[in-house]
Amino acid sequence: MAIVRPRIIDYHGISATQAQLDFAIAFLDEDIPLYVDPFLLWKSPSQQDQSLHTSIINSFNNLNFLVQKGKIDQARDNLILASECQEIGLGLSKKRKGIKISRNKADEILSLFQKIPEYGKYGFVHFEEIQFYVDGIAKDRISDICCNFIKSLIIFDRLYNTTMRRSRNTNY
């Protein structure tokens, strides 16, 4: 009998409940309706969370640097690439196949650096503010961009913590 909405632990035969784990159990074929909120990373008392926020902001503001240097095509391509993060599996997609933003939407976002002098000069402190200026950008897209900017750190942290947990539980 086929499992309806299989989770990764079901697929691999792991007996664990969500309450026993310190991470969200992913479904194999659809996103989990959870999001990374960059504002909460910034507001967190954890220095690690705050450094993730700084990394996200620096990555986003690098797009402004590219725009200011006349490398608009590169900035647009980077933003389009970052606009969907299928590896993490968070958001609203029912098939785990999200859609990247269009060139026009990327141009609309990048134009904020030129239309709003403070953003062009100093960059964003909270890039999630783009939701206020650009239609069609909401928590799911903000979360995907965040995840793309920090996914290597998330993956490394998960691998490191899993390895450390296993080494503590090993009896010699």
Rank of each mutant, 00 (worst) to 15 (best):
T162C: 07
F27A: 14
S46P: 02
I57C: 12
I154W: 03
C85I: 12
Q47S: 10
K97H: 05
D140Y: 02
A2K: 08
I3F: 01
I99A: 09
H53A: 00
A106I: 11
K121P: 01
I57V: 15
D107P: 04
K71A: 03
S15W: 00
S152M: 01
I99D: 08
A24Y: 03
G89Y: 01
N58D: 00
E128I: 02
I32Y: 15
N169W: 09
I80R: 02
N171Y: 04
I88T: 14
I145F: 05
D107K: 09
D31N: 14
I14N: 14
D10N: 13
I3Q: 04
F124A: 04
T162W: 06
L90C: 02
I8C: 12
F27R: 05
K100T: 06
K115L: 11
F27T: 13
R7Q: 14
G136D: 07
P45L: 10
A19R: 15
K139P: 01
R158L: 12
R76N: 02
F39Y: 15
I137N: 08
L79A: 14
C147Q: 15
K139F: 00
R166E: 01
T54V: 02
N171A: 11
L41V: 01
N58E: 00
D144L: 00
S143W: 10
I72Y: 12
I142D: 00
I72C: 03
I142K: 01
H126V: 03
A138I: 07
M1P: 15
I109R: 11
Q48K: 12
E108I: 02
D31S: 11
G89P: 10
D49Q: 05
P117T: 06
Y160K: 11
S102A: 05
I14E: 09
D77V: 00
I137Q: 08
V134M: 14
A75K: 13
K94D: 05
K95V: 14
I88D: 15
R7P: 10
Q114D: 03
I32D: 06
I155F: 11
I14Y: 15
V125I: 11
K69R: 13
A75C: 04
